[in-house]
Design a protein around this nucleic acid. Structure first.
Lengths: 337, 337
DNA sequence: TACATGTAATGAAACGTTTCATGCACGTTG
DNA sequence: CAACGTGCATGAAACGTTTCATTACATGTA
């Protein structure tokens, strides 16, 4: 079907070895010969067969990326960072959504091994333990995404969610507020738990008694609908008992929360200051722009890809790193500017 | 390095052919032998080498997906649809962002050919002509994404943007409005142009004179910032000259537009009815929920992947299809409910 | 007993590369 | 003139599978 190196060789009147050299070490071939080969390639429309290439050489130029769900803007940006880095090195990204399912994750790991990818970037599914040593022994590098240094013999890249929670809360404390609430999905989600801990740490540091100054409002999901539910629950306790400052575990929650509060006549930020998390594009575009915590998601992907590629290229000199990025406070109207 | 079929064969005391049969046609191998081989595979931690597999068989199980940018929620959902379908058939998706650059697109097409992917799903970069016949002649199936049937000998999947513009406008006309504006990015973007044409068609059908009843507000980008700019430009013409109904070419524009209008004291929908496009998640979550046009993005990806796989599997019976999905109006507060 | 039938397993060729030891033709040096 | 580099090109082996013609053996039938 497709033309092979052999046909090119025949057409150019050289041996296959020479064609391979033209492709891989053009400087070792005399100019006249090289041109003859290049003409033949052009003329026949020859395209290298990467399967043969990597079968023989033992290395592919593909990377695996396993995320929970690309439809989540967080992972989308990460994916973009990964793809940009790897495209610069001529590598190719195989995209996998695990949907936080251990089964899917394992299936994909198997497939990626069969593909003999050079390495995988993986956000481990909830509660799963990656068979990292088994992967390693098959020559696959592994970098953890969005999980901080659980193992020192591994590269990982994450954002410090405790610091983020703290940052947001410090901002609210500085504005003089004294009663707080944390609106969040289940605390079994690591991000939620970390952000909550950051909040509590900030409150303690400010000398506030946790029991009386703050409360948690836990809802089942991390979307706008759940945010609205949280607002209704607080409103049910009576207008006079509302907290003065609220931190939501992500921006979707904050948007739903805000809408419900406004509808009930609560003024933001005058009556209640609000801070979200993630700084998605829409946080700035909403009717009352939302103060939020920005994470360097794109950079997260970039860095992870760079670490992985370094581990592949320079296996001997490579030093495993646990990179933790610091989040950033973006102040907007919802918290009083 | 990695253990091969040969070692498995030796360990199980059979020939390599038998191991291959256990892997590919287990029913042709006697149970006792099969178990012996499976044990050996388990014991040695053998993982098939897909490079060798596809070199020999001439077919891979990889698909190429070239989009303009996965960071765009539209393409993210499409990608999700593609990935779900292909994972069911054990295929793998190679993700490529062309950033609407012809050069990048060509680079990726080259790489995908080298990978000998079974086919590509591609949103062609602006103004580019795909070398479809060349791809075909190398055995690669092609399905166009988000471009409607330009060629009858090709599968394509798209959403009818003209119908969408019409749908949105009919809704505004039905509400009794008589002065309109279309807020949009450059009309060189096909989606913008199509949606505008749909709008004009609806206006004409309602017997309105285009020249006096509607105007275009064109801004450089399709984001919230540009939406705000469009609003300021209209406000500069005097409050009394504002249109009564506005269609924005996407929801981000609509969000920025709305914010600026609210800030200027224009009431939505009382003073001005607003309709967006795309129905992104945040359209519903915004302070005044935005009426929008929903597109079946996930389904778009699914269908495209299915068409591609059918073209690969059943090359002989496959009939090329140009699928056009119909968009849907989602009415919310911003247009008066 | 001889023969056909069917089931299992075998062994080697082939896929398209890369790699490496080898060969050849020159020119240079002692 | 012999010996030796140097620069290019060659040809065959190897990578790990799949595939297929062939063999081996057991069972059933005439």
């Amino acid at each position: 079907m497709a033309t092979s190196i052999k046909e090119v060789a025949r057409h150019a009147g050289v041996s296959v070895g020479t064609v391979s050299n033209v492709l891989n070490r053009p400087d070792r071939v005399a100019e006249a010969t090289r041109n003859r080969v290049l003409d033949a390639i052009e003329h026949l429309g020859f395209v290298r067969n990467d399967s043969a290439r990597s079968l023989r050489s033992g290395r592919t130029n593909a990377l695996g990326l396993i995320v929970l769900d690309v439809a989540n803007p967080f992972f989308t940006d990460v994916a973009r960072g990964v793809e940009d880095v790897s495209s610069h090195t001529g590598s190719v990204v195989i995209l996998c959504n695990s949907d936080d399912s251990v089964t899917k994750q394992e299936t994909y790991l198997q497939v990626l091994q069969e593909q003999r990818v050079r390495g995988v970037l993986v956000t481990p599914a909830h509660e799963s333990t990656l068979p990292i040593d088994a992967l390693r022994s098959r020559g696959m590098a592994v970098v953890l995404l969005d999980r901080s240094g659980e193992r020192p013999d591994l590269c990982s890249v994450a954002v410090d969610d405790v610091a983020g929670g703290q940052l947001a809360t410090d901002h609210l404390i500085a504005a003089g507020h004294e009663t707080f609430a944390f609106v969040s999905g289940p605390l079994t989600i690591r991000q939620c738990d970390d952000r909550r801990n950051g909040m509590r740490r900030a409150l303690r540091a400010a000398g506030l008694r946790l029991g009386s100054s703050t409360r948690d409002v836990l809802v089942p999901a991390m979307n706008a609908r759940s945010g609205a539910e949280a607002a209704r629950r607080l409103l049910a306790g009576g207008r006079e008992n509302l907290p003065r400052a609220v931190l939501c575990a992500n921006d979707l929650l904050a948007m739903g929360f805000m809408r419900e509060m406004l509808r009930a006549g609560v003024r933001i930020p005058e009556d209640l200051a609000l801070v979200g998390y993630d700084d998605i594009e829409f946080a700035a575009a909403s009717a009352i722009p939302i103060t939020s915590i920005r994470q360097p998601t794109y950079q997260l992907g970039q860095t992870a890809a760079e670490l992985l590629l370094d581990e592949c290229e320079n296996a001997d000199t490579h030093a495993h790193q646990q990179v933790t990025f610091q989040p950033e406070l973006v102040v907007r109207e919802s918290s009083g500017g």
